[in-house]
Design a protein around this nucleic acid. Structure first.
Lengths: 155, 155
DNA sequence: CCGATTTAGTTGAGCGCTCAAATGTACGGC
DNA sequence: GCCGTACATTTGAGCGCTCAACTAAATCGG
């Protein structure tokens, strides 16, 4: 049992700034999408990832990895999206386990309708205020975090 | 109605890296606290902010601003915390509107018990992997975002 | 082949959050 | 003093997420 290495004043300040900002950022995004497209941000991402896949189709497991979601979360989400007619699920022939989710035309239309407002919001809350250097720094910093979490959480 | 300024490849890449990383980061934090201290991260923050206030007490509105929470969210949260005996609420004498929340000794003990593990997790997921320069960059970037959102969302 | 394990996905309970509405208190104008 | 408004907080419904349990199909070892 070692002594706790507390955060120093600088780290503390940075940590809280990050925490509040990222929280507000996510809430802004979510509110905008909820207001203008009647979907939460997580659902938007599912539609977006599907739209970029060949045949607008993907296995549930692939999709879960892409959106960094648990199998459970994705299953619940896709169930709702299917009920709205935006996604369609069917078992892959030849393998009774895997399910393939497909973006429907209605789903693609909903995504296309939501996209411009969403992108504008992303610019408003983030990119419009940052210099190109800061954008690069942001990428590097969270690249490190992502690599770290992808490996350490996987064991 | 102007043309949408879509994200270019660099922005897209940065945006998704940030999104996934911040999501995983938040989930790691939340899981660790839930596992080891049986509280979500938002509740930890409420206790932490109260613990730093004079008399370990604060108005609900002040507290809400500090943790960047809606009045509703805070009210629900403090209700749970009060049921657990970690926070106590009472009306301020002389003003029947404002409620003062106070961290109890049990609440302080719970916070103290949770803190070391939480700080370690914060280090593990973030600070241990970043250079001092990156920490400073992180602070600057989200300082901008925070200032932006605090002003634009307030009107 | 057959039983045990692994893999893919779903389900249900419980909880925190959002949004809108409601409650109760203070204040400002006449 | 009284009424309308603004303020401080709470409440309840609905929803997305987590966790753990479950179903069912593929695979592997003997």
């Amino acid at each position: 049992m070692s002594e706790t290495r507390w955060l120093d004043a600088d780290e503390q300040r940075t940590w809280r700034t990050y925490l509040w900002a990222s929280q507000l950022l996510h809430e802004s995004l979510d509110r905008q999408l909820q207001r203008e497209a009647a979907m939460p941000h997580a659902y938007y991402m599912i539609l977006a990832m599907l739209s970029e896949a060949p045949g607008r189709s993907m296995t549930m497991t692939e999709l879960a990895q892409l959106v960094r979601s648990s199998a459970s979360r994705l299953s619940h989400a896709v169930a709702k999206l299917e009920a709205q007619g935006w996604v369609h699920r069917c078992k892959r022939p030849g393998d009774g386990r895997t399910t393939v989710a497909t973006l429907t035309d209605e789903g693609f239309a909903a995504l296309a309708a939501a996209a411009p407002g969403h992108v504008e919001e992303v610019r408003r809350v983030l990119f419009d205020r940052l210099t190109p250097e800061q954008v690069e720094q942001l990428h590097d910093i969270f690249g490190v975090v992502l690599a770290n979490l992808n490996t350490t959480d996987g064991c």
